[in-house]
């Protein structure tokens, strides 16, 4: 299996698309920092965001959870469908590895990509936040006006980013399934982004059942830090696990039976 994972990693991390999206994330981090700086500099603005370099990554996470699923759909939507279309999927499938291993390798690449992008967002927001706002004395959260020691702040930021990875991975497992099912990355992109916005709309419609939507849990990391008593962590993790489990099973079943005719 490690051969298959290594192969998938080589492909993913040597693709231009991967680096373009990494640059986009870094650029958005920088632009948002500039935007806050500009806004805070306006005299007629009654509300100013209290911010410094060590607090900026946590603040940026709020924007990141809206942005990163779409970027990941663009990057990973073709994980299987592009290779199917290009006829390169069969190159792997005629080697001495079984389809389950190929699928697990794709899943590992997907999780790694989410982790790497979250890491890029975290590091670039620390760097640009510090360059633009200065490091500051404490970590603080402007919504709750709570102050923490720098070490505590870094820990809380890491926890928030780390926990956010889980629902994003669950959402991306739906995209992986679409990538197997549709065999056309354009369709995966369209359906994936459509699904994302549909989920966002349903958030406001479903009321108490919104907990069943995966995007409800995109904020799990931030909420865990902001108001840990207000979220039911067990319920959130159960829903996330359920998404990953069900989609993983469906991916496996469809991929095993899929005829590779390209």
């Amino acid at each position: 299996m490690h051969k298959s994972i290594r192969f998938e990693m080589i492909k993913q991390f040597s693709s231009k698309k991967f680096y373009v999206i990494a640059l986009i994330i870094a650029a958005i981090t920088l632009l948002m920092a500039f935007a806050i700086k500009t806004m805070n500099g306006m005299d007629d603005l009654s509300f100013k965001i209290l911010i410094n370099g060590q607090s900026y990554p946590f603040l940026f996470l709020e924007q990141l959870i809206d942005l990163i699923p779409i970027l990941l759909i663009i990057l990973l939507g073709g994980l299987i469908s592009d290779e199917y279309r290009d006829g390169t999927l069969k190159l792997v499938l005629i080697r001495p590895i079984n389809r389950g291993e190929v699928l697990i390798s794709k899943f590992v690449v997907m999780v790694t990509s989410v982790l790497v992008y979250m890491m890029i967002a975290l590091v670039s927001s620390y760097i640009f936040g510090t360059l633009i706002f200065g490091w500051g004395e404490n970590f603080f959260i402007y919504q709750t006006e709570a102050y923490y020691h720098t070490i505590q702040g870094i820990y809380k930021t890491l926890v928030a980013y780390g926990m956010t990875v889980l629902p994003i991975v669950a959402f991306m497992s739906i995209i992986l399934f679409l990538s197997i099912l549709l065999s056309n990355s354009g369709m995966v992109l369209g359906v994936g982004i459509g699904l994302y916005f549909l989920f966002q709309i349903l958030l406001g419609v479903l009321g108490q059942y919104r907990i069943l939507l995966i995007n409800t849990h995109f904020v799990i990391g931030r909420l865990y830090i902001l108001a840990p008593l207000e979220i039911n962590l067990l319920k959130s993790l159960s829903v996330i696990s359920l998404y990953i489990g069900i989609m993983g099973l469906m991916c496996f079943m469809v991929f095993q039976k899929k005829d590779i005719v390209c």
Binding site: D86, G87, I94, P96
Partner: peptide, 21 residues
């Protein structure tokens, strides 16, 4: 499958490659 394919090489239809490499 793994044992059966171990000593088999194949070109199916027009050979496909990772073209940018």
């Amino acid at each position: 499958f793994k044992k059966s394919i171990q000593k088999v090489g194949a070109v199916v239809e027009t050979p496909r490659f990772f073209e940018n490499y």
